[in-house]
């Protein structure tokens, strides 16, 4: 019996196996490089932000940046306190979440526990479309539709205000919250529902006492995602809330968010190397850190409430 191995036979010829394996390996390397693009993007984002911030914080002390109550980098006598931009971001996001979390959750409970599948099939695409509308269109809507409407109720409301921007942003975020929460609730096994129903609970009681707590991990991450969308949303606030940094928690006043400030500076002509150019990166880093904190909270919430069915 010859100790002949399959491959040793083919290596005598032009080795189709070798060529094939080389080709397979080459393809794998190309695919790997493609997959690395996303990691490279993250690294590049961090690098670019930190690089410009390095220059920025040589001009402006971090202490001043965090405590000064004025943000006037484009004035003759510039001040660089991030607080007014933070307050604008927090007020508009809080209003948005105040709308999106209750509406999104109720809609999700309704779709997951009450609606029949036919209604769900019709409604879900519409909610998806609501999430697909460009935000600049929502900005138009806030400025020229919602603000005039609110001014009828509150006559003293200025033309640019955080209330209207926040409300419209809430409308935009509602579909995200509802769709992710619904997914989480529908993943709860039917057995748990049946257990509750068999005890004589109504649908609402089952939904609130059994399904909602079981799906809390997914639901809370939908809230976090909504919050990070609100914080990063740009066009609605840039169009409807004004561009005037304003250290206030009053939603009826105008104010600028971090994102709106970046837009405002970018609309002008800023050259690299100037302090104006560096401010938008400092603002951007603050924004990234805020979303990072939200993501970490989300991660821990998801871990803390991990579903074990």
């Amino acid at each position: 019996m010859t100790q002949q191995v399959f491959s040793s036979v083919s290596t005598k010829k032009l080795s189709p196996k070798l060529i094939r394996n080389l080709k397979e390996k080459a393809i794998e390397i190309v695919l790997f490089i493609a997959a690395s693009t996303s990691v490279a993007t993250t690294l590049a984002i961090m690098f670019i932000l930190l690089e410009e911030c390095w220059f920025f914080f040589q001009e402006v002390s971090i202490f001043k940046f965090l405590t000064d109550t004025e943000w006037t980098p484009l004035f003759a006598n510039p001040r660089y306190g991030i607080l007014p931009l933070l307050s604008g971001t927090i007020v508009t996001s809080a209003i948005a979440l105040f709308v999106a979390i209750p509406c999104g959750t109720i809609a999700a409970i309704y779709l997951s526990e009450f609606a029949d599948s036919k209604l769900r099939e019709i409604v879900k695409p519409f909610l998806e479309l609501l999430a697909a509308i460009p935000t600049v269109v929502y900005g138009y809507f806030a400025l020229l539709f919602v603000t005039p409407f609110l001014q009828k109720i509150f006559p003293e409301l200025p033309g640019f205000n955080m209330l209207s921007a926040g409300l419209v942003m809430g409308l935009m975020i509602t579909p995200f919250v509802s769709s992710l929460s619904e997914d989480a609730m529908r993943a709860v096994p039917a057995l748990l529902r049946e257990g509750s129903t068999a005890m004589g609970a109504t649908k609402l009681q089952t939904a609130l006492r059994v399904v909602f707590p079981s799906a809390i991990s997914g639901i809370s991450s939908s809230y976090i995602l909504g919050a990070s969308r609100a914080v990063g949303e740009t066009m609605i606030v840039a169009v409807a809330a004004g561009l005037q940094p304003n250290l206030t928690l009053n939603p009826f006043s105008q104010g600028a968010t971090i994102t709106a400030f970046i837009v405002q500076v970018s609309l002008g002509d800023v050259a690299r190397g100037t302090i104006e150019y560096q401010t938008i990166f400092a603002a951007g880093l603050t924004l990234v850190l805020m979303t990072l904190v939200l993501n970490i909270i989300g991660y821990y919430l998801a871990k803390r409430f991990r579903e074990i069915y």
């Binding site: 019996m1 191995v5 491959s7």
Partner: peptide, 14 residues
């Protein structure tokens, strides 16, 4: 045919 098809050197595709 005397060849161990489970051997590492043998190409599973073959």
């Amino acid at each position: 045919n005397g060849v161990n098809i489970l051997a590492k050197e043998v190409d599973p595709i073959e």
